[in-house]
């Protein structure tokens, strides 16, 4: 279904009525599952993702690898200095318009898993947990563009909830460009946070940054685009990541504040107190 991009130039409004630099509604919750070590639920527009983190914990005795004992043990000792981040993604059959079965061996899913795992591993202080594993399991309930960004954000929130030390939030969002590749329009504006329709039609990329810095953890571009447009898209994307970080941070703070009020967590010392004596 071709998207009528010509209207953008008239009203400077996108198909869903947003301006170029507006995120969709981001709604997030943490601690959605009481039994898990960490859990989160995140909506970016109509993209809905659920995340459960188990660990860091030591995987129990592995079945079936008993034969290769000596060799495997030696190798595991070398790899055991850091916690391993293992991600599994389940894309629900009902998540997109066309009901498609996504097998576990789907290469795109495998790529997403590896991307989320490597992105989180860059921020998590895995060296604190030798011999252990952090299992992140993500469930995609609904897809409307910016899937990778939503997955990364949900995983970050769940890891914060699980109390796993990390350098900073890894926040992600997408950025695009208003006119299609073919239009070769030099004056194309950058766009923030693409939905499914825009993602299909327009060039775009997914950016994830570490905290409030400009340091890019993930940069994925899967569409053809002039190299000159990259800078603008990247700048908007990085800016969007900072906004997303702010939103995620607010969710965590709100939860923490409520826990302090309820008395579940003992109050800490005020920040201002420290510098006094």
């Amino acid at each position: 279904m071709p998207l009528d991009t010509s209207t953008y130039n008239l009203a400077l409004l996108r198909v869903d009525g947003r301006r170029w630099n507006e995120l969709r509604r981001v709604h997030a919750q943490i601690r959605t599952q009481a039994a898990a070590d960490g859990s989160s639920y995140l909506e970016m527009g109509h993209t809905k993702v659920m995340c459960v983190v188990t660990g860091p914990s030591e995987p129990g005795p592995r079945r079936g690898t008993g034969g290769g004992g000596a060799g495997g043990g030696g190798a595991a000792a070398g790899a055991g200095a850091k916690a391993e981040v293992v991600v599994s993604i389940v894309i629900a059959g009902f998540s997109s318009v066309d009901r498609k079965r996504h097998g576990r061996g789907d290469k795109r899913t495998l790529e997403l898993q590896s991307t989320v795992a490597n992105a989180l591993a860059a921020s998590l202080h895995t060296h604190l947990f030798p011999h252990s594993q952090v299992n992140i399991s993500l469930h995609v309930l609904s897809q409307d563009g910016s899937l990778l960004a939503a997955l990364i954000n949900a995983a970050t929130l769940a890891c914060v909830d699980a109390g796993i030390p990390m350098t900073d939030y890894v926040a992600a969002c997408t950025a695009g460009s208003t006119s299609t590749y073919a239009a070769n329009d030099e004056g194309a504006d950058p766009l923030l946070d693409l939905n499914h329709q825009e993602e299909q039609e327009l060039p775009g990329l997914t950016v994830a940054t570490l905290g409030e810095s400009d340091r890019v953890v993930v940069l994925v571009c899967e569409s053809r685009v002039q190299v000159s447009r990259l800078e603008g898209m990247l700048a908007v994307g990085v800016d969007g990541c900072k906004q997303v970080r702010e939103i995620l941070d607010r969710v965590v703070r709100e939860k923490g504040r409520r826990m302090v009020q309820e008395g579940t967590v003992e109050k800490g010392i005020g920040l201002n107190e420290m510098d006094v004596d």
């Binding site: 590896s114 591993a121 860059a122 940054t209 890019v216 993930v218 994925v220 053809r224 685009v225 190299v227």
Partner: peptide, 16 residues
């Protein structure tokens, strides 16, 4: 000068 694909799939963050 057309980008077909960029993939930085995680890893240590790098300045934009």
């Amino acid at each position: 000068g057309e980008i077909c694909q960029i993939a930085k799939l995680g890893g240590t963050p790098v300045e934009a």
